[in-house]
């Protein structure tokens, strides 16, 4: 069905010229869900970034007498945790670490995986086999297990958990990058570029990268939520952040004993993890459909 409507559209000369990314931007601005998600994420980012200037309570300052206050207590708008620290401040400060260990591994994996995938997809042959079979080895393990194993081997700590999560995501992104690249590589315009005498590096830079970056980016955005949850899991197991650092996964862990005393407060870090990951997921869905411009 789309075929005919497309051919109808094709006949229509377009009057206004807008680049590909311009069109994508316009389409995503029209998508309400993506817009709301982007706003929520930006709000969380900014509050985490500017946390010291928001006039919040000290997130490390506890109080033995004001422990586990319910939500809405004066001076404790979101209650207090098991050591009497202000939950609002800890949630906002916690965003700093949580977002960093949620996003950084994906950023690193995106860079490494894209390069590996494009090279494997474009060059093909033995190099492709070598890269992709290595990637397959990592796929044999469930990502949670792999993250725990690598983290465990490297030892606890923020840097190590970022490294382990990066290693978990590289194979996934490589595989996506490779399959998209293989598709683009067989397009006539790549042959046309080869026919004009361009070298492999130039073709990858000019003709492949621009066409594969979009899908890989969308896929990676979706991984951010996985990364946040895995990072929270590592902290929960004591393999990530160490107390008293505020971090959502760790907070969830330490507050779990209070689940019967004050369930609402105990659930708050989980709510944050959930909110951020669902926003990233919906945003990547929105991006995917916005970038799916069929000509």
């Amino acid at each position: 069905m789309t075929v005919i409507t497309e051919s109808v559209l094709q006949a229509a000369p377009v009057t206004k010229t807008r680049g590909y990314w311009g069109t994508v931007g316009r389409r995503i601005l029209r998508d309400k869900v993506s817009l709301i998600c982007a706003c929520v994420l930006i709000a969380i980012f900014l509050s985490a970034l500017f946390a010291p200037w928001l006039g919040l309570a000290d997130p490390y300052q506890g109080s033995m007498i004001r422990r586990l206050r319910p939500i809405g207590t004066p001076n404790y708008p979101l209650g207090s945790d098991e050591l009497g620290r202000d939950m609002l401040a800890r949630l906002i400060y916690g965003g700093r670490l949580s977002l960093i260990i949620g996003i950084l591994p994906v950023v690193f994996a995106f860079m490494i995986g894209t390069v590996l995938g494009i090279v494997a997809g474009y060059v093909g042959g033995k190099l492709n086999t070598a890269i992709m079979r290595t990637v397959d080895v990592f796929f044999a393990f469930p990502s949670v297990l792999l993250a725990i194993a690598i983290s465990g081997a490297l030892g606890a700590g923020i840097v190590n958990s970022i490294v382990s999560l990066t290693i978990v995501f590289v194979p996934q992104i490589t595989r996506v990058a490779e399959s998209v690249t293989t598709g683009v590589r067989n397009m006539d315009f790549v042959d046309a570029a080869r026919a004009s005498g361009a070298g492999a590096l130039t073709i990858m830079r000019v003709h492949i990268l621009g066409n594969v970056l979009g899908p890989i980016f969308v896929y990676s955005t979706g991984l951010i939520s996985v990364s946040m949850i895995l990072a929270a899991g590592l902290s929960f197991l004591g393999l990530g952040t160490k107390p008293p650092e505020p971090e959502w996964g760790l907070m969830l862990n330490t507050l779990r004993t209070a689940i019967y005393v004050n369930p609402w407060v105990a659930a708050l870090p989980g709510v944050m993890i959930f909110a951020v990951s669902i926003c990233f997921n919906l945003l990547s869905d929105g991006l995917r459909s916005a970038m799916d411009i069929r000509e």
């Binding site: 680049g19 590909y20 397009m187 006539d188 315009f189 042959d191 046309a192 570029a193 004009s196 005498g197 361009a198 070298g199 130039t202 000019v206 003709h207 621009g210 066409n211 000509e295």
Partner: peptide, 25 residues
């Protein structure tokens, strides 16, 4: 090539596509 659409890089403007070859050389 036969397929006029597949043989042009969708992310490059027409001018960039034509100028690519000479720049390579």
């Amino acid at each position: 090539f036969q397929d006029s659409y597949a043989s042009l890089n969708p992310r490059l403007t027409i001018e960039e596509s034509i100028a690519f070859g000479p720049k390579v050389h």
